[in-house]
């Protein structure tokens, strides 16, 4: 069977792996995730739910990951696929955070001063 994953870099640490036409004999199916092509160390072993043909993996730090499918400890996927996770840079995230915070603060000041003015006029 063949696995397919995201074609581009993953920016937020979660992604979907799909597999086509899994014969019932290969269920329950597991996915193994490793940081090396030789699968010496397995980072995650993920059971695939029911008879779904895709699974969402999550929580990855930046890096290269290799993924293959197994059934009863035998590898059943033709080739392991390669997924690259590359998170947004922290400076970019913090810049947006600060712009957001500033805009929010402005709104808060506008609202509170308007409310006070309205209460005083009452």
């Amino acid at each position: 069977m063949r696995l397919s994953g995201p074609q581009t870099e993953v920016r937020a640490g979660y992604f979907v792996i799909e597999f086509e036409h899994v014969p019932a004999a290969l269920r329950p199916l597991y996915l193994q995730v490793s940081t090396s092509n030789s699968f010496d160390t397995i980072v995650q072993t993920v059971p695939v739910m029911g008879d779904f043909e895709q699974v969402t993996l999550t929580g990855f730090e930046s890096g290269h990951y290799f993924i293959r499918a197994t059934h009863e400890d035998t590898v059943v996927s033709e080739t392991a696929i390669n997924v690259t996770v590359s998170h947004y840079p922290v400076w970019q995230a913090l810049t947006l955070f600060c712009i957001g915070a500033l805009l929010f603060l402005l709104l808060l000041i506008t609202l509170i001063s308007g409310h006070k003015k309205a209460v005083n006029n009452d």
Partner: peptide
Amino acid sequence: QAHPQLLDLLFPAAVMFLFN
């Protein structure tokens, strides 16, 4: 151990998403 990013307080995508 297996999903460290989920506990990260400086998770970039999550920090960007907050004020939005």
